[in-house]
């Protein structure tokens, strides 16, 4: 796979899955804008690593639930790179709680970032990609958006919403040469999953046919494929990368 000459924006790229995706796209030749919300130092390290591969990279702070900030981020990316070929909507948060204990704020925060944020970023890049008559949008959903998960009503709803959004935008943008696909990672070892209660983790492990946690590299490889020429005839799909959890 070769992404030389392509440019990408990866949200939530300072750590975890987003970081792995940003580095993999860069390794394959793409220039990558590294979005972060809070961890500026970590984002810088990712951008530095990308630059050390000889690609262009810069960091861009943005709360993706803020539409003005998202517009500014996309504008800056297009200005810096001249075009935008790949958007990876990866940024996400968790505010886990049992349904009956879940505060309205916990619900709103997760929907705002994990679902509305994907909408806002997609909307913002559409203009540029429509002009180019090409583009790849890759949304990071989750296996829980397909099969549900106790204690994650907000996260599950948002990630299921991302799947619907993926399909709607795929249909809308297909005539303009833009593909939109989702990846539904299973249980991947990251900072975010480290925060899950041990009990939840153990229970999840028993549900993974391949019997192990996934690695961020597994998701990055799928994202790179969906961004590559080999995936040009694929749109509106949900690629499960979950050790077989959802079939």
């Amino acid at each position: 796979m070769n992404l030389t000459g392509k440019t990408a924006l990866v949200t939530g790229a300072s750590r975890g899955i987003g970081k792995a995706i940003a580095l993999e796209l860069a390794r394959l030749g793409a220039d990558v804008a590294v979005n972060f919300a809070g961890s500026e130092q970590k984002a810088k390290e990712v951008a530095d690593e990308i630059q050390s591969m000889g690609r262009r990279s810069f960091i861009v702070q943005c709360d993706i639930s803020d539409s003005d900030a998202v517009s500014a981020m996309v504008k800056e990316t297009v200005e810096q790179f001249g075009r935008l070929d790949i958007l990876v909507n990866n940024a996400g948060i968790t505010r886990d709680n049992l349904l009956m204990r879940m505060k309205e704020q916990e619900w709103d925060d997760v929907i705002d970032t994990n679902l509305k944020g994907v909408f806002l970023c997609t909307k913002a890049v559409t203009r540029q990609m429509m002009k180019q008559r090409s583009g790849r949008i890759i949304n990071i959903s989750s296996v829980v958006g397909r099969i549900g998960n106790a204690g994650q009503a907000n996260y599950t709803a948002a990630k299921a919403g991302v799947i619907g959004l993926t399909k709607a935008s795929a249909r809308e943008l297909a005539p303009r040469g833009i593909t939109v696909n989702a990846i539904a990672p299973g249980f991947i070892a990251t900072d975010m999953t480290d925060e899950l209660p041990a009990e939840a983790k153990e229970q999840l492990l028993t549900q993974i046919p391949l019997g192990a946690l996934g690695e961020t590299a597994d998701i990055a490889a799928s994202a790179a494929f969906l961004a590559s020429d080999g995936a040009k005839y694929i749109t509106g799909q949900v690629l499960g990368v979950d050790g077989g959890m959802a079939m």
Binding site: R127, M130, K131, E172, P175, R176
Partner: peptide
């Protein structure tokens, strides 16, 4: 609809 959006752009 998409054509009109593009025209406006």
């Amino acid at each position: 609809s998409l054509d009109v959006v593009e025209l406006v752009m």
